[in-house]
Amino acid sequence: MGYKLSPLAFDYYLKALRNTYRIFAPVLQKGKGKFAGTDVISYGEINSLDDIMLDRKSYFSPKEVLYPIRETLFYFLNDETKAPAINVKPILILVRPCDLNGIGKLDRVFLNNGQEVDFYYARRRELIKFAMIECVEGFDTCFCVSMDSNVANNYDMAVRFDEDNITVKVVDKSLITKDLTHADTAIFEPAFIQENKVKVTIPEVDLVTKKTFDHELWEEYTSRCIACGRCNTSCITCSCYTMQDIKLSDDKKIGERRRVWAGCHIDGFTNMAGGHNFRKKNGEKMRFKTMHKINDFYKRFNEHMCVGCGRCDDVCPEYISFSKCINKLNAIVREETLHE
């Protein structure tokens, strides 16, 4: 069902939805950019249309809405463990197709990898509905089309933001409020971007060999990458975390275990008790990430992990471009294959 709404009517609609949902969207955090006098766009709860920032790509992905940066897993009290309750008010997130597909990758890891379902992810995930932001132009660093993630169909609602009006397609009937029934109906199917400025060619999964791993390409990243971890924290699909135990009382009877985001580029990720560290060089970290995003995730789930949102390109202080890395890798693999 499609509806055409004026900005004012859309605000009324949002207001009505807010009775049932907490609504998250990309918002401009004024003065919160790392450089003086700059802003940052990240996901936050919104009240009205004006809060939604669509002109620029969000620096951080919507991942933190359904997978908090820090999350208490449980408290210890004497010999009891207790998981904390969460806010169970349903959530509606406005996301672009790439991010919606990216959340699908998080689902793979947290819900489908191994026998166990991740309790914490699952209970939040169940609360979430998606309003897909129609995205037909993308941004300079996007390569979603190459990653097959420009199109998403598993939305509960799709939204087109035009200058003068907002068109919505509601798939989930529970998102139809009185405000909509009074609005003009419209026939609306969201369009999807068909071509990005940036294109990548993923090397065929089976052609990536040990030789590819040993290639000097990775040495280049040892000299360039500073392992700051921004590519991990901005990525919609990076899902790794580290456990933290916190002592809340001196007798050690009360404690908290939580998890916090971690990542292959973040210091200490592969350090083991006793001092061994499996990927010391930053080029090895880059190789690990690259392979995870465009090679080995595919071997497990038959789909690539990277969705081509391009955030890692946007945020890298060393101007390392992941899309360039993929293309370089592809050239190397093709070269290697020719010489076989």
């Binding site: 890891v109 990898n113 191994g114 166990e116 899902s239 790794c240 580290t242 971690a262 090679n295 080995d296």
Partner: peptide, 24 residues
């Protein structure tokens, strides 16, 4: 293999090598 198995259930990523989760 000795790796830094942390969650033990294939989520946290610490023990992952290539497509393999050592814990799984």
């Amino acid at each position: 293999f000795e790796r830094k198995m942390s969650c033990g259930i294939g989520k946290c990523g610490h023990c992952k090598i290539d497509e393999t989760y050592v814990c799984l």
